[in-house]
């Protein structure tokens, strides 16, 4: 994993938000919570209106020319030198790692690298760029944290754990086989429907065994799959993004 994404914000804490297509289409409140959390931390959040997607679906599907078209659009849309904050470990990893692979032999690789260098997953940014290691507020819940696979090798999960466990009222439970994938995998979920669903069932078994009130992840794609599976079988589970928990903790204590 390329981890050169370490550009710190300036004194005015201006940042750009890459909301991700999943939040744009389905999880509006996750994008909103991300803005509220960042603004609580004194950041000035800009939302480039032209943004669409990080390009990952085509990249993972093997259609790199199609993916590069989208990445080029994203590079153009997020031009400048501000940190780009992404409430998804997977889309962030696409921007600071995946895109570099598919641009290896392209003349505009430097522009892609420049964006990669500025791209941060939200929890990693809060802890390791802003230096905020604890979180105020109140949130009464037993939480299972799903370690989204595309955060492997990054500081996202450690950051999320540090923030969540510091919130009064939160109890974090251990989930079995944390290293195992939930089975989403983008188009994998539809081209390998049986394996994907079996992986999801195993993940749900482990999660349910830990008896959490709430399943939390730094990535909504895993949540869409696990939440959708659980609902389909008639036993829905409550899912939230890390940003929503951080925001609600502030609200619960009247800090927002």
């Amino acid at each position: 994993m390329n981890l050169a994404h370490r550009q710190l914000p300036g004194a005015d804490k201006r940042v750009q938000l890459m909301a991700t297509c999943l939040c744009d289409a389905f999880y509006a409140d996750v994008a909103r919570a991300t803005v509220e959390v960042l603004e609580h931390l004194g950041c000035q959040v800009e939302f480039p209106e032209g943004q669409t997607c990080c390009g990952q679906p085509a990249f993972n599907g093997g259609d790199w020319p199609a993916s590069r078209r989208v990445v080029r659009h994203t590079v153009k849309t997020f031009a400048g030198d501000l940190p780009v904050i992404v409430p998804s470990g997977s889309c962030a990893a696409m921007m600071f790692h995946g895109a570099l692979l598919e641009f290896e032999k392209e003349p505009d690789l430097p522009e892609v690298q420049q964006l990669a260098h500025r791209t941060w997953e939200l929890a990693d940014f809060i802890v390791n760029a802003l230096g905020v290691k604890t979180w105020p507020g109140k949130f009464d819940a037993t939480i299972a944290l799903h370690r989204a696979c595309h955060t492997r090798g990054t500081k996202t999960c450690d950051s999320a754990v540090a923030l969540l466990t510091s919130i009064p009222g939160i109890k974090l439970v251990t989930v079995g086989e944390v290293e195992q994938c939930c089975g989403f995998g983008g188009t994998f979920s539809v081209s390998f429907p049986n394996v994907s669903a079996s992986m999801g069932e195993l993940k749900l078994e482990h999660i349910r065994a830990a008896k959490p009130d709430l399943l939390v992840s730094p990535d909504m794609s895993c949540m869409m799959h696990l939440g959708g599976l659980a609902e389909k079988e008639g036993h829905p589970i409550k899912i939230q993004h890390v940003a929503q928990v951080l925001r609600d903790a502030l609200k619960n204590a009247g800090l927002l």
Binding site: E49, C53, P57, G61, G62, S67, R72, S191, F192
Partner: peptide, 18 residues
């Protein structure tokens, strides 16, 4: 390799035109 992977051409056009 292609079986089950949706074609990405139209999607990429959409995702590069705001």
């Amino acid at each position: 390799a292609a079986a089950g992977t949706p074609p990405m051409g139209a999607w990429s056009l959409l995702a590069s035109q705001p």
